[in-house]
Design a protein around this nucleic acid. Sequence first.
DNA 1: CCTAAGTTGTACAAGTCTGTTTGATTTACA
DNA 2: TGTAAATCAAACAGACTTGTACAACTTAGG
Lengths: 194, 194
Amino acid sequence: MQTGTPPLRRADARHNIDRIIAATVDCLSRQPSASIADIAHAAGVGRVTVYGHFPTREALVEAALKRVLADGDQVLKGVDLGGDPRIALQSLIESSWLLTAQASAVLEAARHSLPPGRIQALHESSELRVHELIRRGQAEGVFRQDLPAPWLTDALHHLMKGAAADVSSGRLAAVDAPRWLVATVLAAYSVPNG
Amino acid sequence: MQTGTPPLRRADARHNIDRIIAATVDCLSRQPSASIADIAHAAGVGRVTVYGHFPTREALVEAALKRVLADGDQVLKGVDLGGDPRIALQSLIESSWLLTAQASAVLEAARHSLPPGRIQALHESSELRVHELIRRGQAEGVFRQDLPAPWLTDALHHLMKGAAADVSSGRLAAVDAPRWLVATVLAAYSVPNG
DNA sequence: CCTAAGTTGTACAAGTCTGTTTGATTTACA
DNA sequence: TGTAAATCAAACAGACTTGTACAACTTAGG
C-alpha cells in the first residue's frame, strides 16, 4: 500500500456532498416524491451541483439510503442488547425509534427507484440485530411464542413508523412517543396470561 | 315532490363511474401517485371518459375517499360494538382491518391533493366509533388507562395498515393477518399486570 | 498569488402528467 | 328505429421533472 492518494475531492465538495445526502434523507422521509430541485434547495446548493456529485436520481437515493442505514447501524451498535430482553428492547426503542422510522420512510421512497434486490441487501443486515433480540426473548420465555418472530419484528416497525408519523402530523408530542411506544410494544410482546 | 326527475345519467355511464371509483381506490391504495391514465386503464375505460365524469384529479380522489370511507362506515355499522370491549374489538378488527388499511392508503394519497380540512371532515365520523369503543373499554377497566385513548386508536390503525402492507408485499399470509392482529392488539391494550 | 477544482444560473432536450378539444363511433333507451 | 347520450383515439397546450451542456464566478489549497 502507498501512503494513500490525496483526497479525491476538495474539502468544500465533501462538505456539500454531506449536506446533499442529509437533505435527501430529510426530504424523502417527508415526501417520497421530492424532486432534485427540492433537495438541492434544502441543501442550500444549486441543482447542478447535485448532478455534479450524483449522476442520477437513483444514485442519490441509494446514497441517502446507505447513509440512513449506516446511521441506524451505528446507533444500534451502541445499544446493549444483552441481559433482560425487555430492558434491551426498551433501550433499543428509545434510542432508535426516530431514526428507524426515518429509515423506513427513505426505504419506501427508494422502493420506487431502486431494484428490489439492491434494497433488500442493504436493509437485511440492519434488521438482523432486532430479529435476533426478539428470538432470544422468545427462547427465554419472556416474549410470547404464539406469534412468529417476523410478525413481532414487523409490528414493532409499524408502531415506530406510525409514532413518527403522528409526531410529524402533530397528533403526538415527541417527548411522549418513546415512553408510549415502549409501553405498547412490551405489552404486545408479553406472554398471554390465560 | 314530483315523481322524480329521470336519472341524470344513462345506465352505462353510472356503471362506468362505479368502475372508475373502484379502480381509483384500488390504484391509489397501491400507489399514491398513480396517474389518471393508470386508473382509466385499470377501470377499462379511456382516459377522456374519466375526465368526462370527474373534472379534475382532485374531484376523483375525493370521490374515491368518500367511497372507501362510506364502505368502512357500512361495515362498521354491521358490527356489534356492545358487550365485552375485547370481543367487540376482535369483531371490529376481523371485519374491517383490510378495508381500514385501504382507506388509510387512499387517505394518504388524498393528503397531497386535497385541502386538509376537507379530509378531516370526512374522516372524523368514521373514527368516532372506534374511539368510543376504546374509551368505553378503558372506563370499564378492561383496557389499560395508563396510555391515552387517542394513542391506542392510532396504534391500532398503524398495526392494521402495517399488516395490510405486509400482506401486499408477501411477508404475511392474508389468512393469518386478522388472527395475529387481534392477538397483538388485545395484548397491547391489556392493563399492565405489575 | 495562482491555478485547478468546485459552484452557479441559464438554457436545452426529452419525457411525463394534467386537462381540453375535436370528430367519429357506439350504445342506451324511448 | 331514431336520437341523444356516452365513449373513444388522437392531438393539443401547459406545467413539471430528469439529465446535459456551457460559460462565468468563486474559492480551496499548494
